[in-house]
Design a protein around this nucleic acid. Structure first.
Lengths: 134, 134
DNA sequence: TATTGTTATACTCTATAACTATA
DNA sequence: TATAGTTATAGAGTATAACAATA
């Protein structure tokens, strides 16, 4: 146990797990960068997502999204659809290939699948609680 | 609940939490990049760590560590100490300033501190179990 | 011969500032 | 005027390959 308390210990483990699992999960696939995989992950609405919303959720400047999306588009994973109501806006939409890759990337790592069903649910519960406290 | 099961849901939340908490925690401080913060985090042994070991744990090519450590060294956070037994090796050692910053970075985010002590311990237990299954 | 760390190169991510086209 | 997205630029991370020093 971490001498600085359970929150500190849990934070340490959470960082460690996300670090050792994230990169391999992405690298196994087509060789997406983390930012590209992240954008794919954020595209959860079927009607698509304005680029500014993606930039917001990504926590980075909108200018960066341009380049990341350029590369995803070049691979045929997303498309820019002009918004009809506000022609300044471009909605990002997953192509079928993008949707398929997105689902493969959402697969939990072996490390989590190895937990018992009970532990998986308890973990889910606790992390949900934490996220509700933002 | 995630329709694809609790492991999938937990993985989704774990990624989300690590994403929203990691960057701000680092940015609040001196403006370290994530890679730099990560190297600081990995420097847990008091006697220091060979650069190749850092590269291993970072999961990147050793050539990258050179640059990251250059910047940490320029800020006076780490030092390269030539190993006496094997003169090819350079051991990375935290300076007092580096040690202090490293501890501040280990502080758990508000989101985890807001959990009850019981939940914090349960979370720690489950993540420990998961990490033992690598 | 093999290993540690470095350099050189090319690509990607990131923030900032300036620009465009809409609103 | 304000907003959505782009371009230009510079600093940083990343992989690969080639190298020097040491083992």
């Amino acid at each position: 146990m971490n001498p600085r308390g359970p929150a500190c210990g849990a934070w340490e483990l959470l960082l460690e797990i996300s670090r050792v699992c994230r990169a391999p999960a992405v690298a196994e696939e087509v060789g997406l960068s983390e930012a590209q995989a992240e954008v794919l992950r954020l595209l959860d609405a079927p009607e698509g997502s304005p680029m500014c919303r993606v930039a917001d959720r990504l926590g980075c400047d909108p200018s960066n999204v341009t380049g990341i999306v350029d590369r995803l588009e070049a691979r045929g994973l997303v498309e820019r659809h002009a918004d009809e109501r506000d022609r300044r806006v471009k909605n990002l939409v997953l192509t079928p290939a993008g949707r398929e890759l997105r689902e493969r990337l959402a697969e939990p790592p072996p490390l989590l699948r190895a937990l018992s069903a009970d532990d998986q649910e308890r973990l889910f519960e606790i992390l949900s609680k934490a996220l509700r406290k933002i």
